[in-house]
Design a protein around this nucleic acid. Structure first.
Lengths: 229, 229
DNA sequence: CAGTGTCTTTGACTTAGGTCAAGTGTTTGC
DNA sequence: GCAAACACTTGACCTAAGTCAAAGACACTG
């Protein structure tokens, strides 16, 4: 299933990526000819820290984690990405190597954009430049929010926020499925698995119940309130 | 001293900013005509969170802090910037408001770049686009490193790293002047002033001695070693 | 030069979260 | 179907950093 070209559903998703949202349908199809679709199993590495930059990626479905491995072997999760999101664009204009590792954490379908083609393509087209700026700004803004949260919210609150991001409704009750295992969620939120467990336990008090990878939120507003303060 | 135009020394510094480093001298002078030089005292606010975006900035001399104020009144420092650095470029292509507050923390001379002129200017010029990508990538990369450090290094190590950034040599002994007060350094490093004091005290053991705003580092390599592990 | 305010340090205490170790299920493989 | 491996939880304990309070140390004011 590897190395095929994008179908129309893929193009659909690609068009919803910030980078391409202002690009015309014609240009999009032209560009799509220079991409490949990759379907990778859980656990597959897309690039290693230090690899020569060849491409950046967009996700059609599934989840990818971006992380750094420290000398002592511990990992720092820099972000998790899913459908409609791009990652490693910042590497497009770097002559150096990827500064992080990317690994699929669930079976994932993604579009791979070759650097050489896209670097030119983006630079010669103001609409693409704008899209690229939007993408990078979004990543920067997200990273900033993560930094802020790590600094000023408790583990319990960060977990609450994470659950709220997964909810599809914005009030009342909702049930969400955790997109990857709890050890990764813990790392993603900057805590140890033990602390995650205890945080889940504490959230029971505001109507959050976990059963395997299914989380029942009784009252979204209540949870929001609990995590905001 | 406000609202004058850039002199040749200013142009010199401007040219060393990532955004403009590949821009020709002719273009630079042309662009400089659309900037203003501002000289602001310590404590002056350049923009507030929520202000309509009008400009981004480059620093000729002095220091600026970028921060968010939370509902509870506490500040989260997102970064500190000095000579040769630009900030708020990400806002160039946002129709919305600034997402943070910028305040001079020492007397500061800066170049103000008007958004309307520069947005067009950047988009119509691949060299400028490249510069802008480089700037944004740098900010993203920095933010990532800050996040990583906050997550996996102790306060003492973060302080050590900060001091090393200020050193001008890369081995042997060195003396550095702290660029702003200790309360801000603490916030910048994600800790309380009390913890900063205690961290300084601990660093005495690896040959770091503080006297007011002067820090004597006996052996840079030793400090590096101490903060790396 | 005393007096007031700001910045910084120090001390005593609390607490969130990490660590280590032992359990409980659940899945996987033979 | 049983054992081994894995994923998660729970408990007991420890430690880095936060909190609160007080005391020094300058620096500016009148």
């Amino acid at each position: 299933m590897d190395n095929t070209s994008p179908n129309s559903a893929d193009l659909e998703v690609m068009h919803r990526m910030r980078m391409f949202s202002a690009v015309s349908a014609v240009d999009l199809m032209e560009m799509a000819r220079h991409t490949k679709i990759r379907t990778v199993p859980r656990g597959e590495t897309l690039f290693e820290m230090g690899d020569q930059v060849r491409s950046f990626f967009g996700i059609i479905s599934g989840w990818v984690k971006l992380y750094n491995r420290r000398e002592d072997g511990t990992d720092v999760i820099l972000g998790t990405f899913t459908k409609g999101e791009t990652f490693a664009e910042a590497a497009l204009f770097m002559r150096e190597a990827y500064p992080a590792i990317a690994e699929a954490v669930s079976p994932t379908r993604l579009i791979e954009f070759e650097r050489d083609y896209f670097a030119d393509r983006v630079l010669s087209n103001p609409i693409m430049c704008r899209g690229m700026f939007a993408s990078l700004s979004l990543h920067l803004h997200r990273m900033t929010r993560e930094y802020e949260q790590l600094q000023s919210r408790s583990g319990e609150q960060r977990l609450g926020r994470f659950l709220l991001m997964l909810c599809s409704r914005d009030d009342g009750p909702d049930t969400v499925r955790l997109p990857f295992d709890k050890a990764l969620i813990a790392a993603r939120l900057g805590m140890k698995p033990e602390t995650l467990s205890r945080s889940f336990a504490k959230l029971k008090a505001v109507g959050v119940n976990v059963e395997r990878d299914l989380v029942q939120v009784d009252d979204i507003r209540l949870l929001e309130e609990h995590c905001a303060k």
